[in-house]
Amino acid sequence: MLKGVRMINIDFSAYEETRPKVEGVVCPTCGKLHYPAPMICDRCNTRRDPSGARYSRWETTELEGNCTLLTWTRVHALPDGFDIPFLQFGIVEFSNGLRASGLLKSENPEIGMQLTAIADVVRETGNKKEWGLVFVT
């Protein structure tokens, strides 16, 4: 097939696959949720193999939606190039018990408040965008 023809047949569904997601994994044996993905389950010792060659792949689970703020900070000492007065960070707990750290976007944060976790750009260096968890009210 000619190169040009192949260009026309772009499979747009491939683009959907790049939709930013923050994922945990599920142990296929005992069902324990993990974030980030370990190489062995700390509950039942099932091994994970990212290549899927020796052991079966672990299903992923998206970290999004309702969560509770466990603690937070507002950092005023920022790296060069940040044109904002401060950045806020928090640690949250999801209803399934998973916990995560991420950026916190709330004007009056309080320990115990309900937040929503979304996947968004958390850092931009040049043209490179880093995606991650953002907790919003």
Partner: peptide, 18 residues
């Protein structure tokens, strides 16, 4: 899951303190 956000040791110190 930590460094990429711009988290630093002082940030963890702050969250621990709060």
């Amino acid at each position: 899951v930590e460094y990429r956000y711009g988290l630093t040791l002082p940030a963890f110190g702050g969250m621990f303190t709060r």
